[in-house]
Design a protein around this nucleic acid. Sequence first.
DNA 1: TTCCGTTGCTAAATCGTGTTAGCGCCCGAT
DNA 2: ATCGGGCGCTAACACGATTTAGCAACGGAA
Lengths: 357, 357
Amino acid sequence: MSPRRVTLADVAKAAGVSRPTASLVLSGRGRELRISQDVEQRVLQAAEELQYRPNIVSVGLRTGTSRTIGFISDTVATSRLAGDMIKGALEAARERGFMLFIGETEGDAELERLLLQAMHDRQVDGLILASMFTRTIKVPKTITAAPAVLLNALSKQPTPLPAVLPDEVEAGRSAARVLLEAGHRDGIYLIGVGPGLRNVPSESLAAVERLVGIREALSEAGVKVAGARTCPDWLPEYGLAATRDLLRTVQPRALICFNDRIAMGAYQALDDFGLKVPADVSVVSFDDHPIASWVRPKLTTVALPHYELGRKAVDVLFTEIERDGADGGQAGRVYRVPMPVRDRESVALSPAAEFLD
Amino acid sequence: MSPRRVTLADVAKAAGVSRPTASLVLSGRGRELRISQDVEQRVLQAAEELQYRPNIVSVGLRTGTSRTIGFISDTVATSRLAGDMIKGALEAARERGFMLFIGETEGDAELERLLLQAMHDRQVDGLILASMFTRTIKVPKTITAAPAVLLNALSKQPTPLPAVLPDEVEAGRSAARVLLEAGHRDGIYLIGVGPGLRNVPSESLAAVERLVGIREALSEAGVKVAGARTCPDWLPEYGLAATRDLLRTVQPRALICFNDRIAMGAYQALDDFGLKVPADVSVVSFDDHPIASWVRPKLTTVALPHYELGRKAVDVLFTEIERDGADGGQAGRVYRVPMPVRDRESVALSPAAEFLD
DNA sequence: TTCCGTTGCTAAATCGTGTTAGCGCCCGAT
DNA sequence: ATCGGGCGCTAACACGATTTAGCAACGGAA
């Protein structure tokens, strides 16, 4: 089909040297092994003229590497937001000359096993195990055949694998700070979980951590949560129901919704009660779902940094690959990626804020 | 790190035969080369016991294959809908024991060149060149180094590459049929392009083909398009403006919107004019964007079959790989994937339909 | 006995590269 | 003249598989 690839042997012949010599020059070890300037130049020029590119498969066979990493997820590639994780990983990998294998398990353990096998058969240099939603997962033990990193997930069992996660606690603090800085001190209600840590589904990392951050930031400012309503699932309809229920008894000044979809429901409930966002009630939320910038007024929310999470996972994976077996005491370390605040239109100054300087 | 992989040599030793013998048995060529039953059994058993798996990198070096295909797109992985194309491709590939490399070019030709290079360096067995939106693309010439298929795209230059595309003409017919079957014969307006083929941006494949299909199906039924409004871009705001403009002069019985986002705008315009969907005006559209099942009433639309497109691309690619150089006269063939109708709530029987049997 | 054919396996080459050990040469010192 | 030692390169093996060619043993026929 195509003209045969240029091999190292072709370059060596063109330069009038042996194959190993060409190899040494091209791998940069020429200097250290005292290859003459003359030979070095001839080899480099021949490689350039012939447009030589090393066959990675061959290098892989010899060195056991493949300049490839595997990205295994439950169902990330398909979801718009989490797809950004792949994009971040993709670009970070490409910058290092690495390619990405992707695979989706759909939560099927057998499929996961097969995928891991297929990737190991191809000698991947490292693996990223990603989850669409932040959660704990069961890490298959065959994973140890290569360096690996958990992305948006923590291991159920104790494991030496590092993990990359959004900094949800700090996100909670950020959300609270947005309200505090707008002068809100009273009438702050939570929609989704709370008000106390007892009212949180403990398997939801995000719920627990966001709540912790919110309470920390508020209490540091001497502010108390006025109340809360839980949602059995973080969907618009439950946000609607929870907020309606709240509005029947009190009039809040600000809502912290635990994600954007809940906030959608809250918007609708507020509208039903004739309350304006943000004039009557400020709303702040989490995730930065695309919907957050579609709704009117646009929703102020603390964003899940999917793209950055993907990049970070690759960064961490490379430090793992580089130190390989050399345990540096970093085992099981958890890396947190900041969640930036998207300041939009759903938060207004509290009337009380007029008294601030 | 991990215990060394089991190699063919290990299996051979365990079975008490030479490496080539083991290879022959495991590749299924044992019979044809008259390996004895006894030896065959020993090899198979040893392989089983040792859990032998061939090293694909090594096989790749020897045979020039990699059981891997490359999926290069402008920015598919990131978009929710088009991400389903990857999913389809992923599953179809996995069923054949193939993995997928993915890469995104962001429309950058240099990046595309580098990606192609990186994939060829890894000896991919085939390539899929995908586009997020159906359009014509410039096919890089280095692509010929491996079998390739265009997905959701046509080549600008003449090319022997096969292409996989949604069947937009038939989709246009389907949309028209939905209305015809509901008894609509009058007051059918188009929003987006039309009414004639002169009023279409010719670079938009989907626009041209959908219109052709619509006009074919209608004229076969002896029905004429009552009128149309074009949109400079297929976005909600233009759909809103175009529909408003239309409603100022006429009262339509049915709208065919050229995509779901236009339909969003149309919904709003109809609402502004106090018209109910579907009681007063039926609406049918294209794409099956997630938004189509969120709006009330849910939108009847002809779906882009992203998942199936991905699968089909892999299917076609494998026929290309199998026949390889053996030109079977299929060069440049275009495969069309059906676009299914999602029957929902935005189309009602026409008053005239009461007179049908 | 010799020759040939068949049977059942293995030796050896191959894919493209990386790496270690070592060879030949020249120079200077003894 | 001999030896030692640096210099600059190459021979040879390795990675893990596939594939071609051919060897040894045996049986039957001439």
